[in-house]
């Protein structure tokens, strides 16, 4: 499904990824691990750049519209599936069936009560879950998520990740939390200085093995 060969990428003019060979098949759930600056985010952007069609994204900075409600920020995930006039009407008066679909997703993320609040009024962790909700609403073939649980507590992290695991078949997650990576993903990619230094099934790995990357 994803095929990268000898790829390089730059971030702000500095080469941050070198000789990336990566093959991902449908249904795989990958975790990218490594220190900050090792190239996880750049790799996620690179994959999105190559495979933008039907891909859901949870970027590190969420990219939410602060003045729009949680509902609308979630709905944005499917803008391209509806006609423009439908989208515009929705902006002025939300379509009830869309609200119901969004509400179902938000319930799983414990955001239901905030559905019509502007995102700007939410806490950091809540905003992060809105970004997750958008990807779940979009429901692409592939999920690319960059630290999707960095701002939520441990218990909620697990629930959010579970929602993502159930929602998408193929997943690439950047995660700095090794334990979560091992618990939820079936394949671990270790990055160091922009190179892939480890690529093994998580079953064959222990926390200790991964600590060397940090």
């Amino acid at each position: 499904m994803i095929q990268l060969q000898a790829e390089t990428a730059s971030y702000r003019g500095v080469k941050t990824l070198h000789d990336i060979d990566l093959h991902i098949t449908k249904g795989e759930k990958l975790a990218l691990v490594g220190q900050s600056g090792s190239g996880k985010s750049t790799l996620i952007k690179l994959i999105y750049d190559r495979y933008p069609v039907d891909t859901s994204l949870v970027p590190q900075d969420y990219g939410l519209v602060q003045h729009l409600s949680v509902y609308h920020n979630t709905y944005i995930g499917r803008l391209d599936q509806f006609s423009t006039w439908y989208n515009l009407v929705n902006l002025i008066r939300p379509w009830p069936d869309q609200v119901n679909k969004v509400r179902a997703i938000l319930t799983g993320l414990q955001l239901e009560e905030h559905i019509f609040r502007p995102v700007g009024e939410l806490s950091g962790g809540q905003k992060q879950r809105v970004a997750v909700a958008r990807s779940l609403f979009q429901k692409g073939q592939l999920l690319l998520a960059d630290e999707p649980v960095s701002s939520v507590d441990e218990q909620q992290s697990k629930e959010v990740l579970k929602q993502l695991m159930d929602g998408f078949s193929t997943i690439v997650l950047a995660l700095h939390d090794i334990q979560l990576a091992l618990a939820f993903c079936d394949r671990i990619i270790g990055l160091e200085n922009g190179r892939i230094v480890l690529d093994r099934p998580s079953k064959s790995l222990s926390t200790q093995d991964l600590l060397s990357l940090y």
């Binding site: 952007k45 999105y48 750049d49 933008p52 891909t55 859901s56 994204l57 970027p59 990219g63 944005i76 803008l79 391209d80 423009t84 989208n87 515009l88």
Partner: peptide
């Protein structure tokens, strides 16, 4: 965002 909508959306 990288995946931001285009046009009128």
């Amino acid at each position: 965002r990288l995946d931001a909508a285009v046009g009128l959306n």
